[in-house]
Amino acid sequence: MEFGPHLMLASLEGAVIAAILSLTAMGLSIVFGVMRVVNVAHGEFFMLGAVLAWYVTSALGGHPALGFVAALLIVPVLVAAIAATADRLILKRINYDADRTIVGTIGILYIIQQTTLMTFGPDARPVEAPFNTRLSLPWFEFGENGFAMFWPWGLSTTSYKLFVIAAAVVILLGLWMVITRTKIGLVMRATQQDSEMAQAFGVPVGTVYSLVFGLGAGLAALGAVLVVPIQQAHYLMGHDPLLLSFIVVIIGGLGSLPGTIVAAILIGMSDGIISVFFSPTIAKIIATLLVAMVLVFRPQGLLGKTAP
């Protein structure tokens, strides 16, 4: 394949990564923005989403679409409920103290991961996509015969991958509407601005925190349900999304939602493109080092506003 079509393929792969990543990172970003909590267990909620999706689809059987739709509806809610319970049982008791929260969520990370290992086992298991038509893509070129369109061999994607991208966009738009237009969103924003003041105005801050923590985990789970037909469910799969989400949230400016989306697209696309052309290890080295440097020299994020 030539460079042009190759790049297009890489961009498509990157767009799928970016779509999933923006959902996952958005969950982390909302939790940090509203609660000022760094949730190290975020990747495990992602993993839990994928694993539970496998359980739901294999329990239902029948047409893959049936199981998939069921998983899409049930799993995020289930994961959100688990996360909200963890918030109630653990984080609330330590008063969201920064250091202790990190240690506590590291604990939650291992508890979820190892419980999955004991029940789900060490194997990776696939979930069948509801539809998976292979679509060949055209390429345009100015050749000897002028402008021409042809179908290079290997330049293709699947209908499911396109669906993932579209679904992520729809979900994020929906989330945006909820945050900006509804009462729940208003309460969330009020709590983010000043939790004590919100409390004084009768906002049940404790409940809002549990809901937000659940919402964050639910978004990660939603991303995982979408990705699991492409990537198999495995008990260690939470590691990379956690790291990438961290990177996205930091580059996008801690707690800034628009920044998170822009950074997710940036990181997802470049991850897809770089790993097609370069060694993935080098790409990861550059990415992690870049994040560390951003935090050191521009703690408000690359895309964040300069601190007043």
Partner: peptide, 15 residues
């Protein structure tokens, strides 16, 4: 799944 112990201990300690 011995790291489960580590997780439980971490949570119990912090709380």
């Amino acid at each position: 799944a011995y790291m489960l112990i580590a997780g439980v201990v971490l949570v119990l300690l912090t709380v």
